[in-house]
Write a protein that binds this DNA or RNA. Structure first.
Lengths: 233, 233
DNA sequence: TGGTAAAATTAGGCTTGCATAATTTTTAGT
DNA sequence: ACTAAAAATTATGCAAGCCTAATTTTACCA
């Protein structure tokens, strides 16, 4: 309620909340070891921090069971997500950053900017709903669009889909995707799928004759929406 | 020489270097107690940090005598100054901040931005030489313009001068200055000076009939250059 | 030159956030 | 149900940075 009295969380705290949010979204729960791996920190360090976070009322901790964000914790996590994604959008749009290099810069800036600066950046961009990697940007009030994407790895042969979201963390991976023509918005048809988690062959729309092959694991991380077939004819 | 291998200083370290640089510029030397006052930290804490900084080769410490930046320390301090001033310029120019509110935001951001982002911001602004408060911006190579300003408090009655630099830290003070029409670039004539550190009366150029009175202490902090009299006739 | 005030440092303590080693709890397989 | 492996926690310890209280050094003045 009180917008002013933000005790301002530590950088570490903010990173923990982000990691827990991500784990909760992906797998429903956040285990100590998973947090440790996300943050590249030893598990006992996580145990210690979890105690502090739960004493601050940002998470709820069931010992030996895992951790959940409280409403307050989720609010902070979404705020960080907003910061990160607005910053990425701003750096690309206004300062000429490449999509494979914004993440690192945003990772540092998100802890330093004020809410006011974020709102000014967002306004300067026309309040975008998605960041350059296709991820939805939470609103200033802490709402985030529920996305219902399907991984490219699950689209059957003959299926037509549009790439929506690619994740922003690995810049080499992003450069590779760009070299394949795979950016948010790209529409493609699945031409073939090898069994045993084998590669997937795509035909990209609008680039006559451009076929590309994508490994299964990579395809699993590419979030897509199905497209009506007739729209492609 | 190696641009990549920056161990990246802590926020605290960066603040100490900035404070020491400022004190060296002003009074030639930096004493423990002066650093403590600048940073609003207890003197023994400064003693402790001074030991660490001098072990890192950023400052030279003569016990009980004071502290001096090494070449490496000065380089870092100037880099921080550049960051701060480029950020202030950018926030005002591109994101609509007021000149009395940029300082606080820059104070946090300067520790988080990369050199690359600073260069991109500077380029987007056309590589400005001065920040919005009139302070010279060090170059990316660590050179800073030697300014030779005279405090408004030392300009004799009848003297004509141009306000150059006002300092950026106190936002109330900045709002007050703006309300008097005193911003970098303002040209004025000293109409009267009371003795015993009394107030100074100015006539502002170009705003017919606008006379303002400024207290001595405030005038002492307003850096000006003298203007040829005939240029004003 | 002695004595005191100011400045600086040392001594000792606290919190945050990390680590490793040891221990406890949970999970899963037979 | 028992037991080994996996997961989590507790026990300790460390560095950075801050604090207050006590001590040392320097500076200045009569």
């Amino acid at each position: 309620m009180n917008e002013l009295a933000r005790p301002s969380l530590s950088r570490s705290t903010e990173d923990y909340l982000k990691a827990i949010y991500r784990l909760e979204s992906q797998s429903g729960a956040a285990q100590t070891s998973a947090i440790a791996e996300e943050l590249e920190i030893a598990p006992p360090s996580v145990s210690g921090m979890v105690k502090r976070l739960s004493e601050s009322g940002l998470i709820e901790h069931l010992p030996y069971r895992g951790v959940q964000l409280t409403a307050a914790g989720r609010r902070e996590a979404l705020n960080m997500l907003r910061r990160h994604r607005v910053i990425e959008s701003y750096l690309m749009e206004k300062l000429g950053y490449d999509w494979d290099s914004v993440h690192e810069e945003a990772e540092r800036l998100e802890h330093a900017v004020s809410d006011e600066l974020i709102e000014r950046m967002a306004r300067a961009l026309g309040d975008p709903q998605y960041d350059p990697h296709g991820a939805p940007i939470p609103t200033a009030t802490g709402d985030i669009e529920e996305v219902n994407y399907v991984p490219m790895s699950e689209i059957p042969v003959g299926g037509v889909a549009q790439l929506r979201s690619v994740g922003d963390e690995d810049s080499e991976r992003l450069r590779f995707l760009a070299s394949l023509g795979l950016v948010p918005g790209t529409v493609f048809t699945v031409l073939a799928r090898q069994p045993f988690k084998g590669p997937i062959t795509l035909r990209l729309q609008g680039e006559e004759g451009r076929d590309e092959v994508v490994g299964f694991d990579l395809a699993k991380s590419l979030q897509c929406t199905r497209v009506e077939e007739e729209a492609q004819r």
